[in-house]
Design a protein around this nucleic acid. Structure first.
Lengths: 225, 225
DNA sequence: TAGATTGTTAATCGATTAACAATC
DNA sequence: TAGATTGTTAATCGATTAACAATC
C-alpha cells in the first residue's frame, strides 16, 4: 500500500506546472472539435513544445496514455484539470479597480478557464459602492470581512506600486494565501503565501532588448563583418 | 583591439534579461530618492533576489561596480537601460482595443518605463475611427500602412484567441519583429520575430495548483501522518 | 593598512531533450 | 505479428549560488 504513491506526493517542477495550463487550453479546443485521441507529437506541436518535454511533463501526473495509441483527450483534460486543483473551487478577489483592474474584472478568459472573481475591492471612496460587472466594489478597509465571507484564497493585485506592499500585507493578514501581482513593485510575503507577478512594462523591455540585438546584427551585416 | 569585446557580443541569458528590467525599476526608485551608491547586497534585497545572482547578472553587461564601494546608482541605471535597448526608440502598436486592450492603451506603466503606444488597431468597424486616449483607432486592414508610417517594430496583441494567429501573421507581414501576445492562443512566428506571451488565466491556474497542494498538506496534517 | 564589496570560479541544482525499451 | 507511441533513462544544457581572490 505504501508504495502506491498519491500523485500529489510527487514534486511537479515549476516549469511543468506552467505548461500544464497551456496543455489544458489546447485540450479544451480538441474537446470542442470532438477529437477523441491525441498523440504526444500532435499535442506538443499544438502547444508549441517538444514532444519529449510534453511526455515528461505528463509523466509527473501519472500514466494516462496508451502506448501505440496516444492520450484520450477527455481523460487527459480531466487529469490535468485535477492536478491544477481546478476541481476544487478557488474564490478570487480583485483588489484595485482602476484602469487595469476594471479590465481584469471584465476579462472573459478567467471565467471560461475556471475562475470567478467573487469580490472587488478598492481604496478610492469614489469607487467604493459602485457596481462593476454586476459586483459591488468594497472598501479595502473591509478586506478581512470580505475575504472571510467569500472564503477567498487568491487575490489579484492591481493597485498603484506605492501602496502594493501595504495592501498585500492586509490581504495576507486577512487569510489570502496566493497573490497575483500586477503592480510594478517587489513584494515580500510570508513563506506560506504564493506570489506570482505580471510585469507588463518588463515584457516590453525584454522585447526591446531583443530588438536592439537584431538592430545591432543588421548593422554589423551592413558594415560587412 | 579585437579582444576589447563589445558587450553586445556577449550572450546574456534569458533569465538575466528578465531580471534586468526589475533591477532598472528598483534603481529608478533609488534615483528618485537621491541615493548615490548601492551595494549588490542592498540592490539584490530590494529586487528580491540573491546578491550573487545580481552580481552575475550585472557582470554580463561589464564591470560597472567599484570593489569595496558598490555601484553608482545613476551609472548602473544608464548601463542597464542601454543594455535593454531603451536608449533607442521602439514604436509600439496595440492591436485589439476591446476590454483588455483599452486598459493596456491607458496603462501609465508603459509610458513611465520608456514605451509609447504609437498606434491603435482593431477589426471592429464600430471601433475604427474612435479616439481612445487621444489616439485614433485604425482598421487592422490598414496594418501595413500604419506599421510603416509609425516605424513600428513591437506589437501588443489583445485580440480574441480565434483570430490571434491571423492577426499575428498580418503584423509579421507588415514588418513587426516583436510581439507581446495576450490572447490565450499558441502562436507561431518566423525565426526573426520574437514572441512573448502573457496568459492571465494560466497565472491563476498556477496559483490554483499551489493552493490545492497547500490544502492537501493541511488535510494530511489534520489526518495525522 | 584594514575593511568592504565586487567579479569570477566552480560546484550544484533543475530543466531539456534524444534515444529507446516497454507495450498497446 | 508489425507498427506506433508511450514512459523513462541518461546525457546535456542552462541557471543558481556559495565561496573567495582581486581590489577599491
Amino acid at each position: 500500500m505504501s508504495d502506491l504513491r498519491d500523485p500529489r506526493d510527487l514534486r511537479v517542477p515549476d516549469a511543468t506546472v506552467a505548461r500544464l495550463a497551456t496543455y489544458l487550453r489546447v485540450l479544451s479546443t480538441l474537446v470542442d472539435r470532438s477529437v477523441v485521441t491525441v498523440s504526444s507529437e500532435e499535442l506538443a506541436h499544438a502547444a508549441g513544445v517538444n514532444s519529449a518535454k510534453l511526455r515528461k511533463d505528463l509523466s509527473y501526473l501519472g500514466s494516462y496514455g496508451v502506448r501505440g495509441v496516444g492520450y484520450d483527450v477527455r481523460t487527459l483534460s480531466e487529469q490535468i484539470s485535477h492536478a491544477l486543483g481546478l476541481s476544487t473551487h478557488h474564490e478570487v478577489a480583485l483588489v484595485g479597480v482602476g484602469n487595469l483592474g476594471q479590465a481584469l474584472a471584465g476579462y472573459g478568459g478567467f471565467a471560461s478557464r475556471g475562475f470567478r472573481i467573487a469580490a472587488l475591492l478598492d481604496a478610492d471612496p469614489r469607487l467604493v459602492g459602485a457596481v462593476i460587472g454586476g459586483r459591488i466594489v468594497h472598501s479595502v478597509d473591509d478586506v478581512a470581512t470580505v475575504v472571510k465571507e467569500h472564503s477567498i484564497t487568491i487575490a489579484v493585485l492591481a493597485v498603484p506600486a506605492h501602496v502594493a506592499q501595504e495592501v498585500c500585507d492586509r490581504l495576507v493578514d486577512a487569510g489570502v494565501t496566493s497573490i497575483l501581482n500586477f503592480a510594478p513593485a517587489v513584494l515580500s510575503v510570508p513563506e506560506h503565501v504564493d506570489l506570482r507577478k505580471v510585469d507588463l512594462a518588463a515584457e516590453l523591455q525584454i522585447l526591446s532588448f531583443h530588438e536592439s540585438r537584431k538592430a545591432a546584427a543588421a548593422m554589423a551585416k551592413v558594415a560587412g563583418s
